[in-house]
């Protein structure tokens, strides 16, 4: 095993040689007996392992409890009714803006007509097929 291969194994498997693949262990031990550089590389890998151990993430039990509760709520909770959800969620969004707009238009129309800003318009059906529109505009045109 070359020093470069030893370094690669130390980076890959860490500083515990018993965790290295079996074919590499014997060669690594031989190199360690003869090479100061190999010993330095291994010492550095052991030091990094120790640091990584210190940074092992620890999640609080409260986190586990919250996840368990959330999963249970999702699975055991009442199944959403598509029909109810559709109307309950969509109706306020679609209905009220449209109703508001119509109300504003109606108020504006009434106000304009009553102030004489807009000519009155009447319509009556003469027959089933004809509709005669008598408009303030046509009256003015005459």
């Amino acid at each position: 095993m070359t020093l470069k291969e030893f370094n690669h194994c130390a980076d890959l498997y860490g500083g515990a040689i018993d965790r290295w693949p079996a074919p590499h262990r014997g060669e690594a031990m031989s190199l360690l007996r003869t090479s100061d550089e190999a010993r330095a590389i291994l010492a550095e890998a052991v030091a990094l392992d120790t640091l990584l151990d210190r940074a092992a993430p620890v999640m609080a039990q409260a986190s586990e409890r919250r996840v368990l509760d959330a999963i249970a709520r999702h699975i055991d909770g009442p199944p959403p009714s598509p029909g109810i959800t559709l109307f309950a969620a969509a109706a306020p969004v679609r209905f009220w803006p449209a109703a508001g707009l119509l109300a504003i238009m109606a108020m504006a129309g009434i106000a304009a007509t009553s102030q004489g800003l807009w000519p009155a318009q009447t319509a009556c059906a003469v027959s089933g097929w004809d509709i005669v529109v008598t408009s303030g505009y046509t009256e003015m045109m005459r």
Partner: peptide, 22 residues
């Protein structure tokens, strides 16, 4: 527990890890 630890290593907060694992 291990799933939470794995997720926590990747995301930025405990809350995100909980959401991911859930």
């Amino acid at each position: 527990r291990r799933s939470l630890a794995l997720a926590r290593r990747i995301v930025a907060s405990d809350a995100d890890a909980e959401e991911v694992v859930q």
